Amino acid sequence: MIYHTIVSELKEQILYITINRESKMNALNKQTLEELADAIAFAGNSNEVRGVLLTGSGEKAFVAGADISEFSAYTTEQGEALARNGHTHVFNAIENCPKPIVAAINGFALGGGLELAMACHIRVASDHAKLGLPEVTLGLIPGYGGTQRLTQLVGKGKAIEMITTADMITAEMAEKMGLVNYVVPQTELIAKAEEILNKIKQRAPLAVASAIRAVNANLHKDEDGFEIEIEEFGKCFNTSDFKEGTTAFLEKRKAVFSGK
């Protein structure tokens, strides 16, 4: 797929995905979601990719929300389809991607933008970032998993407060609440995200994927997280990386993992 609203670049096993609609505050429109779905699918299936860094172009916005003009006249059925397609192909695909995805939040992360960041496995925010779910000011609620993921990250009380008041919070407050992992100056944002991914790159890729799968199972009511952990633990024993990791430990050297 040829991308028109995102930029995707693979460097040193990290796939850099930049939402490239700076004049529109990187708002999510249908085309952007389709291109994100394609890029995330590539990341999950490519042996060349060890991690993903997701950000927005410019310094004003990560993603300032969805493109309201595209759905302002939707019916109930169209609205449900919009949310369901987004869940399946983008937001859930990000959460369930076997490669770690780090969101570098470089400004406003509002509505669908915050939902996009929350779907990522790790979040780093610039110190001037502002985060919020303002959908109730439009007569809507978050439709891309925001009610669920925000509750998982910050708890029921804070989630209901943020969603029903539609208030934005600062990056500092988001860090205190557990909504983001780190807050850094804007000039250090990408470097911090890269630091995390470069550390993960040194670990066994299949074990990293198993860890993501097991942690996510805790959030799914139809799965037994302990059972998934046991299964994923067992699978690791049948990998070359397990043999390399244990051999390197016993030989007191650094392991070199192949992802096999």
Rank of each mutant, 00 (worst) to 15 (best):
Y16S: 10
T18F: 04
T18C: 07
T18E: 06
E22G: 01
S23E: 13
K24L: 13
L28C: 04
N29D: 14
L33P: 05
E34C: 15
E34S: 14
E35N: 07
D38G: 12
A39W: 06
I40E: 04
I40G: 07
A41K: 14
G44M: 09
N47H: 02
E48F: 07
E48M: 03
V49M: 05
V49W: 05
G51V: 12
L53F: 12
L53T: 15
G56S: 02
G56M: 03
G56V: 02
K60I: 14
K60N: 10
A61T: 15
F62V: 08
A64N: 15
A66C: 14
A66L: 14
S69N: 14
E70L: 06
F71E: 06
Y74A: 07
Y74M: 04
T76H: 09
E77W: 03
Q78K: 08
Q78A: 09
G79P: 12
A81C: 09
R84E: 14
T88K: 14
H89D: 13
H89C: 13
F91W: 08
F91Y: 06
N92S: 01
A93K: 00
E95L: 01
P98H: 10
P100L: 10
P100F: 08
I105L: 11
N106H: 02
N106F: 02
G107C: 11
G107L: 11
G113K: 07
G113L: 02
E115S: 11
L116Q: 02
M118R: 00
A119T: 00
C120F: 01
I122P: 03
R123M: 13
R123Q: 10
V124L: 13
A125H: 04
S126I: 10
H128E: 03
H128N: 13
